[in-house]
Amino acid sequence: MAEATLRVFRGGPEGGQAVDYSVPVAPGMVVLDALHSIQAHQAPDLAVRWNCKAGKCGSCSAEVNGRPRLTCKTRMDSLPRDKPITVNPMKTFPIIKDLVTDVSWNYEVNRKIPPFTPRPGVEWKMQQSDLDRVQEFRKCIECFLCQDVCHVLRDHDKKAQFAGPRFFVRVAGLEMHPLDGVSRTGLLKDTLGLGLCNITKCCTEVCPEDIHITDNAIIPLKERVVDDFYDPLAWLLRKLRRTRP
């Protein structure tokens, strides 16, 4: 049987090293299968977070050959076999052990977002065409690959000022909901740091659910923030009427 070499990060918060494992490759095998094979035959304590192995739970995120990927959706036959396949934990989050990272910061950010709040007395009747756009955002499986690849978080570590693509997707799903009555543009501008995104579209590129994060969530949200806070005419009218956006 054909063999592949996986170069897997082994270690913890204090550091670690890449360890090479030779794995027999079966037809249809994905990188997560290869990691399970390593667990079963070579390193039973190799830490990998996974659940469904069907690309729906968002647990098995890692960086395969430098690209943020779900390891369960990365086929071995899609990777060049002439050099070792590197598998590293997501760089943006603190390492717990081996390929497992602490993603709890995301859940803290999530709590800052006001949940779906229907307008008082609204009629619970919606057109499918109005829902189509929010349904795209509901596909998110919270794999946090977009958060991992985003340079604002990954390279500049702006976790205190910036919520990241995943949460702009969540806010977009709420803001664009036909029955929702809460404005989150102030939150986007001041707390979630939407302005720090400079639309490099890396998040869209790595999304395993093919959500058009930049085009359909982030840019429309930026437009809403601009409308509410930076439109000079609206600003003047608000001054005259003494209202807030």
Binding site: G12, Q39, P44, D45, L46, A47, I96, D98
Partner: peptide, 14 residues
Amino acid sequence: RVEGSRLFNPGWHL
């Protein structure tokens, strides 16, 4: 028999 530490050890869990 299980190797390694008690931290996130899939072999131990199994």
